[in-house]
């Protein structure tokens, strides 16, 4: 092993107007071809996608882009919002993704999101299918049963980073690479106060899509749903139930993976996402 290797990923900031205010959004990208926008999980940031971003095969056909949502990673809160409680909503999340794609001038990108990113992908399929070439939801469902009280995530007598990471640690499959597990949890230990909790407002309260996904037309925009067998938050059953109500949606249960497939075990995830990305390419040729 020698030092000096520089990864082909490069990161920049783009100024994006979201709900009337300019947000300075950090994004990383690599590759050329079909734009593929990747959405991180609640309470973390776009570093979760770093393995996909350096995949030599995928980046030959895709311009892979991963951005930090406002309040996450290197995207600060908008100037006017410091000191206020952060709450992600279906409307604000949808607006953020669309504004980011517009700011970069992306032509009908593919969007792949995980967890809250998977949920919002369903909303994009409901409301904006024509704007996207394909949509991929990881650990996605129209709804799932809560399994803890989110008030524990942001209170002064509990270390936010420690409790956020400890809670989600159980969502990682047990026998993945130790370094990848630790890196996945590190993202949770670094989140700003109340940000994970604010993301879960969308997940738990505002973003219940039950009764709305039946109108998704996969002929306008193909929809792929993939969920790890060890995800007990968005369970395989949650995803299969959601997919069963969407004619033409493709659902896959991923073995030996949990709630963070792209970061907790990148090699195992690759086995499942490679055929999906190839299918998207094949559909472009029809």
């Amino acid at each position: 092993m020698t030092g000096g290797f520089i990864e082909p990923i490069f990161g920049r900031y783009v100024h994006v107007e979201i709900e009337g205010e300019i947000n300075r959004i950090y994004f990383e990208e690599n590759g050329t071809g079909i734009p593929l926008v990747c959405l991180h999980t609640a309470g973390s940031d776009a570093r979760q996608w770093r393995h996909l971003l350096v995949d030599e095969e995928f980046t030959r056909n895709y311009r892979i882009i991963a951005f930090d949502m406002p309040w996450h990673g290197k995207s600060n809160p908008p100037d006017s919002r410091y000191g206020s409680e952060y709450r992600l909503t279906t409307a604000s999340y949808t607006a953020t993704i669309r504004a980011f794609c517009k700011a970069l001038g992306l032509d009908r990108p593919v969007v792949m999101g995980c967890s809250i990113g998977g949920r919002i992908v369903l909303n994009l399929a409901i409301e904006h299918a024509r704007d996207f070439r394909a949509l991929i939801g990881l650990e996605a469902a129209d709804f799932q049963q809560p399994w803890y009280d989110t008030t524990w995530l942001n209170r002064p007598d509990v270390h936010g980073g420690e409790v956020c990471a400890a809670l989600v640690s159980g969502l990682i499959a047990p026998d993945g690479p130790e370094a990848a597990r630790n890196e996945t949890l590190w993202g949770y230990k670094q989140g700003g106060p109340g940000v994970f909790k604010g993301d879960l407002y969308f997940y738990r309260v505002d973003g219940d899509l039950r009764g709305r996904t039946g109108g998704i037309d996969v002929n306008q925009c193909p929809l792929y749903l993939l969920t790890g067998e060890y995800d007990f938050s968005c369970t395989p059953e949650d995803t299969l139930r959601t997919a069963a109500g969407i004619p033409g949606a493709k659902a896959t249960v991923m073995e030996r993976l949990g709630h963070f497939p792209m970061s907790e075990n990148p090699d195992q995830f690759r086995r499942y996402i490679a055929p999906v990305l190839q299918d998207v390419i094949d559909k472009q040729k029809l």
Partner: peptide, 17 residues
């Protein structure tokens, strides 16, 4: 188990089920 079955692998997975 060294590789617990899915859904039986975490303390809070057990409370959920």
């Amino acid at each position: 188990q060294s590789r617990p079955p899915a859904g039986w692998h975490d303390l809070l997975a057990l409370t959920k089920r």
